[in-house]
Simulated assay, not measured.
Amino acid sequence: MREETNFDIEEKFLQADQLIADSRLSEAAKMLEEILAEVPDFGKAHNHLGWLFETKFKNLARAEEHYRLALKFSPDYTAAYYNYCYLLASLRKFDELEKLLQTAVGVSGINYATLYNEYGLMREMQGNFDDAIHYFRLHIKNSFDAKSIETAAESIKRCERKKQLLENS
């Protein structure tokens, strides 16, 4: 059975997305809530509300709730994985982050370089520098963006330096 596309809701969602881009955040949040009042299982709207709550309104509990709902209702919407990863990393919820990354690797259209970077950062935060370096190398292998590759190379240098400094202490 094929899922029906509700073009009116999709258009309203795109309008909310544009409001975010225009920094009209309150209007965007209200429009996203209207969408969810009409279609409670519209995962993309949950993702965008999660992002607003996390990055703009600083309500991390609400952000986490919306990211979970985004993944529940739209498991193929890759943006929700990236956003939820960033939140879990900032909260240092490494067990949940590990599970999310494992799931995300199997999602069609996901950016492996981004996921491997998140794995690398998580391992670095955990103090497992060898693993972090491994993941940053995988990031480089899967990246096609010169700036991203350079950032990963710097991450490797940073981890090697931390490893050196902490082994000698």
Rank of each mutant, 00 (worst) to 15 (best):
R2T: 13
R2V: 13
E3R: 13
E4T: 14
T5P: 00
F7D: 14
I9R: 06
E10H: 08
E10C: 05
E11W: 07
F13A: 01
F13L: 09
F13Q: 02
Q15D: 05
Q15A: 05
A16V: 10
Q18V: 03
Q18Y: 07
I20E: 12
A21S: 15
D22F: 01
D22Q: 12
R24W: 00
L25Y: 15
E27C: 03
M31H: 04
E34Q: 12
I35Y: 02
V39P: 00
P40K: 11
A45C: 02
H46V: 02
H46L: 01
H46E: 04
N47D: 14
G50I: 04
W51Y: 15
L52C: 08
F53Q: 05
F53P: 04
T55H: 10
T55V: 09
F57A: 10
N59K: 14
N59Y: 05
N59E: 15
L60Y: 14
L60Q: 14
A61W: 04
A61I: 14
A61D: 15
A63Q: 04
A63S: 14
E64G: 07
Y67T: 03
R68K: 14
L71K: 04
L71S: 02
P75G: 00
P75Q: 01
P75R: 00
Y77D: 01
T78K: 08
A79K: 08
A80R: 01
Y82H: 05
Y82K: 03
N83F: 01
Y84N: 03
C85P: 01
C85M: 07
C85E: 06
Y86N: 13
L87W: 07
L87S: 07
L87H: 09
S90V: 11
R92D: 13
K93F: 08
D95Y: 13
D95V: 13
D95L: 13
E96W: 03
L97T: 10
L100E: 07
L100M: 08
Q102S: 15
T103D: 11
G106N: 04
V107K: 00
T114I: 10
L115F: 06
E118L: 11
M122D: 01
M122C: 04
F129H: 11
F129V: 07
D130S: 13
D130R: 13
A132P: 02
I133T: 09
I133S: 06
Y135T: 06
Y135K: 04
H139F: 00
H139V: 00
I140P: 10
T151H: 07
A153F: 05
A153D: 12
A153N: 12
K157L: 10
R158T: 06
E160N: 11
R161Q: 15
L165Y: 07
E167N: 10
